[in-house]
Design a protein around this nucleic acid. Sequence first.
DNA 1: CTTAATTTATACCTATTTGGTATAGTTTTA
DNA 2: TAAAACTATACCAAATAGGTATAAATTAAG
Lengths: 135, 135
Amino acid sequence: MKITQEADYALRIVLNLSKLGMDNRIDAKSLSEEERIPTRFTLKILRKLTQGGITRAYRGVHGGYALNQNPQDLNLKIVIELIDGPICVNRCVYDKEFCNLKRTNHCSIHHVLGEVKDLLTDKLESVNFKDLLEK
Amino acid sequence: MKITQEADYALRIVLNLSKLGMDNRIDAKSLSEEERIPTRFTLKILRKLTQGGITRAYRGVHGGYALNQNPQDLNLKIVIELIDGPICVNRCVYDKEFCNLKRTNHCSIHHVLGEVKDLLTDKLESVNFKDLLEK
DNA sequence: CTTAATTTATACCTATTTGGTATAGTTTTA
DNA sequence: TAAAACTATACCAAATAGGTATAAATTAAG
């Protein structure tokens, strides 16, 4: 019931860039030092964020990264799912192949874990990075 | 953001035993067949449940397992945490060593993921196995 | 137009966790 | 006393997590 360390780092990276604002960039090395994330790992995460449209990369001398969207349009769920994949709680909810529903047409575990998933998803979606900055 | 398959199985085992009621036992083999869980893995999970006080084991011929508590006193959180360990969302919330709080005395990621953890915990705690049976 | 600072792409590596199995032993009831 | 159960411990393979390495492409500045 955890997000990966990589997703955790990604949240911190996006928060850092949110502080800077969309118009300012920072290079991966400085960012990694500020956030205490291994530099190469930071690069890898930034690549995913860039491919996912969350950040924007500038190459060459004085290059770096900046947010590609307004902080208020980015929330925890978007970042976590980009890195970790969809939030799913258990495989029964995610993949019906593994679910009793197939056999018995009823699976109360499925049902309640679906509720848990929805609750979690809604909460993560409700927190955007503008909110986080203001805390 | 998932529970393990083992915890998922454990929920189904406890639900099965809840259906039986505290006064009736079932042996591991039958249980594993009903729930489509590998038999040896079922035994392993039942051992953990028994050590955790959730089930009770009867040895010897006509032995088996029964619930050791009323279904309404058992909830999703109790079973999941027994198998998977504490719900923690990320290591920052769980272990302050890894948290910016140490450095900066403020970590908004920590704060909000703490909220997520609490929400999740409360929800899992709010669903007991009597409720599940009645669904 | 060349050099240095930067990102990109791909691939690799190691440790841990997960999911499950095996073996040998203990208890109980008929 | 034999068979049907549970117990304890330890082992194993595959997947995932977390991170590293190498080589190439791009860009700004001098």
